[in-house]
Amino acid sequence: MINILGQVMVYVNNQDEAVKFWTEKVGFAIISEEDNGEGMSWIEIAPQKNSQTTIVLHNKEVIAKMGTGINLGTPSLLFFTEDIEALHVKLSNNNVLVGEIINMPFGKTFNFADNEQNYFAVAERNKQYYKL
């Protein structure tokens, strides 16, 4: 039985730049860095060191050459925050491309893009729609 989502794989063109984006601009922590010594490396990041679900940044070109048939597209990720306005200001101040904050039936939300123009969404948690 599956009981938790452990990792989300994000395939990027430039791992170094992706790590800088997520750690320096968004404020994520590096959980681990691995290199198999044969050209494949990956970096595990998360909003906090003790996060249950992490993001693993893989080199898209290396994974494509493996011929595994994995979908290398960027997954649609929705992050939660307790203070959407403060996060919007922080990302804007860190030169992250952010969309406007909009009101939805489930609460406030906005999107942002990484350096490779992959878009992600953020929502402010609303007790009525999201389990806290």
Rank of each mutant, 00 (worst) to 15 (best):
F21K: 11
Y11L: 09
N50E: 15
I45F: 07
E33N: 12
S76R: 09
P47E: 00
E38M: 12
E61W: 01
A121R: 03
K49V: 12
V89G: 00
V19C: 07
L5S: 06
I2Y: 14
F110H: 07
E100K: 13
K20R: 14
I31T: 05
K131P: 00
N93L: 06
N115M: 08
Y130C: 02
F80H: 05
I30N: 04
N3Y: 13
V19E: 09
N94M: 03
G99R: 01
N94W: 00
G37D: 06
H58Q: 13
P105C: 07
L132C: 09
I63Q: 08
V8D: 03
S51P: 04
F28C: 09
M66P: 02
P47I: 03
S51R: 04
P75A: 01
E38T: 11
L78S: 06
E33P: 05
I43E: 00
E17F: 05
M66G: 13
Q52E: 15
I4F: 09
Y119V: 15
E85S: 07
K131Y: 10
D35L: 10
D83P: 04
Q52Y: 08
L91H: 02
A123D: 06
E17H: 07
T53P: 01
Q117S: 14
I43T: 15
N94F: 00
P75H: 02
M40I: 10
N14F: 07
E38W: 03
Y129M: 11
T23W: 09
Y119W: 15
I30C: 07
W42C: 13
A121N: 10
S92I: 00
A113K: 12
I31D: 06
G27I: 10
E116L: 07
T81L: 04
R125I: 15
V12T: 13
V56T: 14
N94P: 02
E116I: 08
E61C: 01
I45Q: 06
N36V: 13
F21H: 12
V26G: 09
G39A: 11
E82Q: 10
M40N: 12
L5M: 12
E38N: 14
V8R: 04
N95E: 10
Q117T: 09
N93H: 05
Q15T: 15
M9Y: 12
G6W: 04
S51Y: 09
Y130K: 03
S51W: 06
F28I: 08
I102T: 15
V10L: 14
N3S: 15
T53E: 02
Q15D: 00
M66E: 13
V62L: 02
S51N: 13
V96H: 02
N36A: 11
S92L: 05
M104N: 13
V12C: 11
S76T: 13
I84H: 03
Y11I: 05
P75W: 01
P105W: 02
L132A: 09
G6N: 15
I101Y: 03
H58D: 07
A18D: 11
E85D: 10
S92G: 13
T74F: 01
T23G: 06
I63D: 01
N50V: 07
F110W: 09
Y11A: 05
E116W: 04
M66K: 11
N13C: 04
K25L: 08
F110D: 08
T68K: 08
Q15S: 07
V56G: 03
A18E: 14
E100W: 00
E33M: 11
N111R: 03
